[in-house]
Amino acid sequence: MNDKTKPSAMAAGPVISMRDVHKFFGALEVLRGVSLDVASGEVLVVIGPSGSGKTTLIRTINALERISAGSITVKGVPLAVPGPDGRTERPSDSAIRAVRAEVGMVFQRFNLFPHMTVMANVIEAPIYVRGLDRAAAEERARAILSKIGLLDKASAYPHQLSGGQQQRVAIARALAMQPEVMLFDEVTSALDPELVGEVLQTMKRLAEDGMTMIVVTHEMQFARQVADRIVVMDQGVIIEEGTPEAIFTSPKQPRTAEFLRRVLHEVV
């Protein structure tokens, strides 16, 4: 592993590159050979039935899940690569942290730090991981919070906010690290229906600003409107990928059609 590889030197290539990724949980193979490139500025939406491996897929990208075989590089930094014997080596802690600082993640259940104010949540990692001084971190946080319309909640605690507001703070917290890529793991699934819109709106604006995003979601309307490309997963493999029009209007795979028929009917 070459630590001197400068991410900027690789800017022309894909931001994320996954090759033949396999992941086992015990005897269960959750990812069965996934290859995927994500370009800078691309909004990739991952859909598929539950248990298809979508969540595991994006969790491998910042090493919340270690892969069993294959390779992943993020901005040219190898997160998991085959070692000399061909088996996937465990990435070093420093490689993992370097990647995580570039990859923001938003979770289904927000995972805000409950003992900290909104402001403290947002500036924690910029100060203690990026080494920003407090004034600069707060200024950055205020800019982000005002953009998502939550500046007036800066001194509130998470439990004083609605679920939708909490999730937007979680997005702000990830953005404060100025990541290259944002991962969204079913971020609206734990929300009351009337709160989903504000979170999707925030994500949509982020996409318009050119953020590279990988979004696992069941919100088909969002997928259709915002995605540059849609990836359909089933049983641990990518069964189909294409533009939203192609996937929604003329899916090639019967399983894609079947899945879409089911979720689109549920929505009614």
């Binding site: 910042n62 919340l64 802690d93 942290r97 370097a98 995580r100 600082a101 990859v103 923001g104 993640m105 979770f107 259940r109 995972n111 805000l112 730090f113 924690e124 990692a125 203690y128 991981v129 979680a170 917290r173 990830a174 690290m177």
Partner: peptide, 23 residues
């Protein structure tokens, strides 16, 4: 303490000691 707290800190690139002390 909720395991999600560890994951959130991990995802932000926070080292273990820092996560212990602050989170």
């Amino acid at each position: 303490v909720d395991k999600g707290q560890w994951e959130a800190a991990d995802a932000l690139g926070m080292p273990t000691g820092l996560t212990f002390r602050h989170i």
